[in-house]
């Protein structure tokens, strides 16, 4: 079966984002960009299913402008077979992203769609669920375990009270949680080889998708800083301070 994996290019998780001086957005020029960590886990999961002989072809897709190619190269270097770049300079929001992914799904007809549970820039956590809704298929969000059994995906999901297992009719959408797997390290030769793998380029217009934003960012600001604290010298002093403010 074919697996489609949606990956996003985001500011690397080790970098502290800086707001542009005019407050219009977050600075991405000359900032280290990486594949969204959850999406790397999604690629890894597809590769493991391929190693088991369940998945036969892995197609990675990203929606973004030209630079987004580099995360596709990363996915190809990990072992994805092909990649699709949907070129868009629009300010993309989850609903528009899921509509574009739906159009890609319809061209590719995968049995399995893997996404991250959340993009670590917008922290929205919506695209997978929205895509499953638009496709009218089942969803397994926050997956920490995935098994394919016959015509079903058996997904263990991380929920607030522990974990839950659901069985989904294929095709289905799965979103990954951190504990699903540990992505492999990409070796340099693989990166070189990935340059030979094909990246197809499309545009949202070609796909006929309206990407008009529903949400407008009015303002970005630093969160209010906490007032500076103090260092205490001993456990006894700590206890005394906590008692004096009624914390214990």
């Amino acid at each position: 079966m074919k697996a489609l994996v949606a990956i996003k290019r985001v500011i690397d998780h080790n970098i502290r984002p800086r707001i542009k001086p005019d407050g219009s957005g977050v600075e991405t020029e000359n900032v280290k960009m990486s594949i969204n960590p959850f999406d790397e886990i999604a690629v890894e999961e597809a590769l493991r299913l391929k190693a088991q002989g369940i998945v036969t072809e892995i197609v990675a897709v990203t929606i973004g402008h030209g630079h987004a190619q580099d995360v596709l190269r990363h996915a190809l270097a990990m072992g994805a077979d092909r990649a699709i770049l949907v070129d868009s300079t629009a300010q993309l929001q989850p609903l528009a992203v899921s509509k574009i992914l739906k159009a890609v799904y319809e061209r590719e007809q995968p049995q399995l769609v893997l996404l991250g549970k959340q993009a670590i820039d917008d922290d929205a956590g919506q695209v997978g669920q929205m895509l499953a809704a638009l496709l009218d298929i089942g969803q397994g969000t926050f997956a920490s375990k995935l098994e394919i059994s016959g015509n079903e995906a058996i997904v263990t999901r991380e929920v607030d009270t522990g974990s839950e297992t659901v069985a989904l009719q294929l095709p289905a959408v799965i979103t990954t949680d951190l504990r699903l797997n540990e992505p492999r390290f990409v070796k340099l030769p693989n990166l070189m080889m990935a340059k030979k793998k094909p990246i197809e380029s499309l545009t949202a217009d070609e796909l006929g998708i309206d990407t008009a934003p529903h949400l407008k960012v009015v303002n970005l600001a630093e969160p209010p800083a906490r007032k500076p604290g103090i260092k205490v010298n001993s456990v006894a002093e700590l206890v005394e301070k906590l008692r004096s403010v009624g914390a214990i």
Binding site: P17, I120, D121, L215, L220, A221, E222, P223
Partner: peptide, 10 residues
């Protein structure tokens, strides 16, 4: 957004 590093008004 960005793990709480930025506060957005939308």
């Amino acid at each position: 957004i960005y793990a709480g590093s930025v506060l957005a008004t939308v």
